[in-house]
Amino acid sequence: MEISTTLSTNPVEDQRLAEVLASPGFGQHFTDHMLTVEWTPDEGWHDARITPYGPISLDPATAVLHYAQETFEGMKAYRHDDGSIWTFRPEENARRMVRSSQRLALPELPPEEFVQAVDALVATDQRWVPDSVGEKSLYLRPFMFASEKFLGVRPAQHVTFMVIASPAGSYFPGGVKPVSLWLTEEYTRAARGGMGAAKTGGNYASSLVAQQEASRHGCDQVVFLDAQEHRYVEELGGMNMYFVHADGRVVTPETGGTILEGITRASVIELAGKLGHEVEERKFAIDEWREGVASGEIVEVFACGTAAVITPVGELRSAQGTVPAPRSTELTMRIRQALVDIQYGRAEDTFGWMHKVC
């Protein structure tokens, strides 16, 4: 893919950038440039370009505004101590976007071109990648949407793929601490045959009212049960879950087409195995959670995602009462440290997960 580059004539000044990178928060500041690629049935993917970051113009009849035909990814770039910049398993994000695109009837961007596009923007805006102190990184948001001006329920004939970037601080600026969860028994995230396995905005939009419910009950996150039996644990609003048993086994809910196949999720499974822990992917009932913590059979519960990396889970609240926090976070923190050390280049990458950008 040929990518043209038009550099900004008004980049953020060095002094202001230093202030931003010292305390970036999350999703508040954006780099000097963005990448855009267009698709039509006749031309395929074309007109790949890096341009100064700025607003985009959409006609009121743009298809995505009416029919929600869009997908996105979330990933990070990390600066290592030698100044080099790396991304974490970008080819897996690329392959997941292909799967999401298939479900949303969008054109498939070849994985090698996805990685090339992300690399190009990161290399152009490399001064925006923070140092590793405090687990800072450059958050990357590739996304694809139906950009055709058309009202009608059919796959769009003009699609736009973009990549934007935003420096990000640690999800836990005050140190990692367990998150409290609210079990929603009214709302579900996805049903079999639906879009649960696709990374599309509709799945996140549907979680917001349940997250409001969790907040009203003083909880950090919401946990969903399956849509069919309302019995099995699926995932949080944006994180996958794990349950550590007293004998060292780790259980994570099977995806089954209703759970997003997280890249961090897959990495945790491999890391846990390397640390000598058997990992089971299967249905996991909410009663198994309640009874396991009460009996001491479940000794840790944790969740993972791109933003938080890995976080211990504290108490679970619901209309049925409260399940107290498990007694330990030992394995949770071991896996977390192992993963973060690989991402920031502090440990050998024996898995081949890291991809050097520049």
Rank of each mutant, 00 (worst) to 15 (best):
G321K: 10
R336H: 06
Q320H: 11
W86D: 00
H230S: 15
L208A: 05
G152T: 06
G262R: 09
L21E: 11
N10E: 12
I85K: 02
H230R: 15
R346A: 12
K76T: 09
A308W: 01
V233Q: 09
V20S: 08
E270W: 05
G256L: 04
Y344W: 15
I56P: 03
T5G: 02
D32H: 13
D125H: 12
I164C: 13
R89L: 05
A123F: 08
T6R: 14
E254G: 08
R317K: 14
L208T: 12
A210C: 07
V37D: 01
T188K: 05
A285Q: 05
T62V: 02
A319M: 09
G248I: 10
H217I: 10
L109I: 15
S215I: 13
H46E: 13
F161I: 07
G74C: 01
E213D: 09
Q343S: 10
L138V: 14
E38V: 00
R265V: 02
K177M: 00
G202S: 08
S100G: 07
F143L: 06
H29C: 08
F224T: 04
R103S: 00
K76C: 12
H355R: 12
L260A: 05
L236E: 13
T332D: 03
N93T: 01
D226H: 04
R99F: 00
T252E: 07
F88Y: 13
V279E: 07
T62C: 07
I50E: 04
D14A: 14
S206L: 03
Q69M: 08
T40S: 14
R127I: 15
H217Q: 11
P324I: 02
F30S: 12
